[in-house]
Amino acid sequence: MKILLTGANGMVGKNILELAKQHKHHFLTPSSSELNLLDNASVQKFLTEHQPEMIIHAAGIVGGIQANMAQPVKFLVDNMQMGLNILNSAKTFAIKRFLNLSSSCMYPRDAQNPLSETLILKGELEPTNEGYALAKIAATRLCEYINQEQPELLYKTIIPCNLFGHHDKFSEHNSHMIPAVIKKIITAKEDSTAEIEIWGDGEARREFMYAGDLAEFIFYAIEHFDRMPQNMNVGLGTDYTINEYYQRIAEVVGYKGAFKHDLSKPVGMKQKLIDDSKLKAFGWSHKTSLTSGIEKTIEFYLSEKNNDQFTN
């Protein structure tokens, strides 16, 4: 198929393209200047000229707690606008297959874990990333509505757990936890820093999947798209505490210092573990262990350490 991949320059997009060499599909990977998802006219022009048979929507404004709290307007408005533009335009052009990438951030903050797909809009959202979550919920619901009105249009959503891996952002200010901690611990080891700070008590639980595994799932989904559920979690079905992630990364890096907790800092949801029942029934499971994924990610970080993306 001819597949339009939005967000081809992001972590998920780059991991998909790394694996694309093993498959026969032709990927359209426009830059933001070639396809401005915030401009509906630009979206319609691109679809008119290139006529993809499927769209994988992986573009978005992403970041950790600090970034979400600092720019809630951008996380809501830009992500909402991109989702609405690409979905409405795909519907207008009768593109039959659309895979929307959402996030487990859109589940209610106090929902019982593991988080099943039926919990969307069943409770208050986590305030620290509410804007991002609202945008993801809107795109997910729009996929459902389009399919309800036109069943021949298979517009489906996957809900990945937290991700890490190759092509991640390694920054303490705008990245997710694992890459930020990798950079922090490697820097502490290099500088012989005796102590590292952890936000909160470190007992919040998170589920992180290696991004290369998500890319493998994407190709599995493409081949079995007709029988894939409307909304489906994609993750491990296993989680760890923040403290455990710090400890595992420190072990791999060889950092021997201590950890201290800053209880004044926000920690987000206490737990965010997806229910992988539908995923198992769909016939797919992840391959990369946490330790192996951390090792591969550290190797990538060290090999790319002098690139601009790590100094910004």
Rank of each mutant, 00 (worst) to 15 (best):
residue 167 H to M: 04
residue 232 M to V: 03
residue 25 H to Y: 10
residue 168 D to F: 05
residue 60 G to K: 00
residue 103 S to A: 11
residue 245 Y to N: 00
residue 55 I to H: 00
residue 308 D to W: 13
residue 206 R to K: 14
residue 193 T to G: 10
residue 291 T to P: 10
residue 55 I to K: 04
residue 193 T to H: 03
residue 175 S to Q: 04
residue 7 G to M: 05
residue 144 E to S: 11
residue 90 A to W: 07
residue 301 Y to S: 03
residue 124 E to Y: 00
residue 256 K to W: 00
residue 89 S to Y: 04
residue 300 F to N: 08
residue 165 G to P: 07
residue 266 P to I: 13
residue 76 L to P: 07
residue 133 A to P: 09
residue 208 F to A: 06
residue 81 Q to T: 15
residue 73 V to R: 14
residue 161 C to H: 06
residue 188 A to H: 06
residue 69 M to E: 14
residue 269 M to R: 15
residue 56 I to M: 02
residue 294 I to S: 02
residue 281 A to D: 14
residue 182 I to E: 05
residue 171 S to Y: 10
residue 300 F to G: 04
residue 191 D to I: 00
residue 267 V to M: 14
residue 129 N to S: 08
residue 73 V to D: 15
residue 147 N to E: 11
residue 66 Q to P: 05
residue 263 L to A: 11
residue 304 E to P: 14
residue 186 I to G: 03
residue 250 A to E: 00
residue 208 F to C: 04
residue 236 L to G: 05
residue 175 S to T: 05
residue 17 L to S: 03
residue 13 G to L: 07
residue 57 H to V: 09
residue 270 K to Q: 14
residue 174 N to K: 02
residue 230 Q to T: 02
residue 158 I to H: 11
residue 115 L to D: 02
residue 169 K to T: 14
residue 20 A to V: 00
residue 15 N to S: 12
residue 118 T to G: 12
residue 13 G to E: 01
residue 144 E to Q: 01
residue 154 L to N: 11
residue 34 E to G: 06
residue 134 L to G: 05
residue 155 Y to N: 10
residue 88 N to I: 03
residue 137 I to P: 12
residue 23 H to A: 04
residue 248 R to Q: 10
residue 223 E to I: 01
residue 8 A to V: 01
residue 275 D to A: 09
